[in-house]
Simulated assay, not measured.
Amino acid sequence: LHVDVHGGGHLAVIAPMLVNAASVGSFVPDNASWTEFQQTASDIDLKVSKNGVINAINISKEGTQIYGNKLHITAATYIDNATIKDAMIANLSANKLTAGSINAAKINVYNLNGSNIVAHSITADKLIAGSMLIAMNSTLQTLKIGTDGLYTTDRSGKAIGKIHTNNSVQHPNDWGLDFDLNSDGKFMSWGAQNEGDPNGNYGIKFGWTRNSSARDFGMPWGGFWFNDNVMLHKNLRFDGGGIDVKDAYQLMKFAWIGMNGIKYPFFGSSNLKAGWLFGSHETYLVRNGGIINASKVLGALNGQKLIVPTKIRSNGTIAVYTTYHL
Rank of each mutant, 00 (worst) to 15 (best):
K47C: 06
V245M: 04
D125N: 13
A159S: 03
D247W: 10
G222H: 01
T98Q: 13
L326A: 10
H72W: 10
V109Y: 07
Y78N: 14
G261A: 07
G290D: 01
S23K: 08
F238W: 09
K311P: 00
T98E: 11
R215L: 07
S183W: 02
K234R: 12
D154A: 09
W225C: 09
L251Q: 05
E36H: 04
I59H: 07
I89M: 14
V169T: 05
K205W: 14
I257R: 00
G100A: 13
R215T: 14
I128K: 01
I145G: 04
N201W: 11
Y151E: 08
M219K: 06
V118W: 03
V320F: 04
Y249N: 12
I107R: 05
E282A: 03
E195N: 08
G268T: 09
R237M: 09
E36M: 05
T123F: 11
A76L: 10
S23L: 14
V28I: 15
A41D: 11
G279N: 01
A99G: 06
K263P: 00
G299A: 03
E282F: 00
I243M: 10
P198C: 00
G9S: 14
S42H: 11
A75H: 04
T147H: 14
L326R: 04
L232F: 08
E62T: 13
P309Y: 08
P198W: 01
G9T: 04
A15Y: 07
A274N: 03
K311R: 13
N173A: 04
S189D: 05
T310W: 06
I318F: 13
D125A: 15
D239S: 14
S93D: 06
G149W: 00
K47M: 12
S156R: 13
I163G: 13
S60A: 06
N302W: 13
